[in-house]
Design a protein around this nucleic acid. Structure first.
Lengths: 105, 105
DNA sequence: CAAACCAATCAACTTTTTTTGATGTATCAA
DNA sequence: TTGATACATCAAAAAAAGTTGATTGGTTTG
């Protein structure tokens, strides 16, 4: 079963968002609780604009949600997307009979 | 439980390798069977050097093995690494009680 | 209203990744 | 041994991603 182009895009875009050390740190902080940008800034000791860049990145990959409250912006994980990626990887384990190549030529 | 820096590197490096459409296509072809470079070239319609670049990329992330036979080089998936990444993602689902943020200030 | 605050965005710059075409190396076949 | 094949590697160019500092927009506070 081949994934469609559209699904594939979702997939590698998701992995791309996870392919940066700072973004991994961000989601690990969000794993236990929703946090506002200022708190992430403090804990990760990075500039606000840098953080904004990476949060946008995570958001565009559907890995986080955000909600505004007053002048604060709170971010939290979108677990659904994590499950999607997890299941994509799980497919590899499912049909794990990998046939050795026939000799080439 | 926080992952160590070393583990984290393994993780985002793994995701980084999966963050490219061509590399996703490659692993999807390898999902059912080991293939040689020339066959991947044909099926994906990309240049050989381009393919080599991406295969190296996958290999450095431990997502594939390779073995040489005569003048052919055969690539196959390293499912162990897929499982590692899958389990990393699964951790997010496991403790999915995400506490809403306390009001900031 | 004005000032303070939080966070997004922008432009300029730096760094990393990817592509391309050429070259190198090893293997095999004639 | 010569030529062909399969693949890796390299250097240069192109494209994409990330960083930085400044600015902007929206919200609250005084």
């Amino acid at each position: 079963m081949l994934v469609t182009t559209k699904d594939s895009t979702q997939i590698w875009a998701g992995f791309r968002a996870l392919s940066d050390p700072l973004r991994i740190q961000i989601i690990e902080l969000l794993r236990s609780q929703e946090l506002c940008v200022c708190e992430l800034c403090e804990q990760l000791e990075v500039s606000q604009s840098k953080l904004s860049f990476h949060l946008k990145n995570l958001k565009e990959a559907n890995l986080v949600y955000s909600r505004q409250q007053g002048r604060w912006m709170y971010y939290r994980l979108n677990l659904t997307q994590f499950v999607t990626l997890e299941q994509y990887l799980a497919e590899y384990r499912r049909f794990s009979e990998i046939i050795p190549a026939k000799a080439c030529n």
